[in-house]
């Protein structure tokens, strides 16, 4: 990562009671920095979806946030099972979430599409049995 303000947050796996906390924290930071509301909105959506994905699918992970005057870079790293078929995972409505998780209102199959829609760049590096790294950029 290049120069800028950098923050790292660990995400607890399987802890739905804390899901959304990091998104909320980052949103507050961005507001304090006086960034445009539209940028904050997009980052909040990406952060929340990624955070939830890590809790549901990957037993947690790490979120790196880097803020420069031009962009916000969000890197989500986990050591989960990996994504077998990215093309399918990117389709709206496709989900591998369990019945239990769906009952909580998740598993709409909108997570990755929402992340893509709200970012300017999105790269996914996933390896089965090793983990997934998602690298997203939101331009300011």
């Amino acid at each position: 990562m290049s120069n800028g303000m950098k923050f790292r947050y660990p995400v607890d796996g399987n802890d739905f009671t804390r899901a959304g906390e990091i998104s909320s924290k980052v949103k507050k930071q961005l507001k304090q920095l006086g960034l445009p509301p539209e940028v904050i909105r997009r980052v909040a959506i990406i952060m929340y979806e990624a955070e939830i994905n890590m809790v549901i699918h990957a037993n947690g992970g790490t979120i790196d946030v880097e803020i420069t005057p031009e962009q916000i870079r969000l890197v989500f790293s986990d050591t989960g099972p990996g994504i077998p078929d990215i093309e399918k995972a990117m389709q709206e409505g496709f989900s591998t979430a369990s019945h239990e998780v769906r009952e909580l209102g998740f598993g709409a199959g909108m997570g990755l599409p929402n992340m893509k829609k709200n970012s300017d760049e999105m790269k996914i590096d996933t390896r089965i049995g090793v983990g997934t790294i998602m690298d997203l950029i939101v331009k300011i």
Partner: peptide, 14 residues
């Protein structure tokens, strides 16, 4: 009709 705390998390973020 969702009653769990994730509703609050989403409502707060948005």
């Amino acid at each position: 009709i969702q009653t769990n705390l994730n509703v609050v998390a989403v409502a707060a973020l948005k």
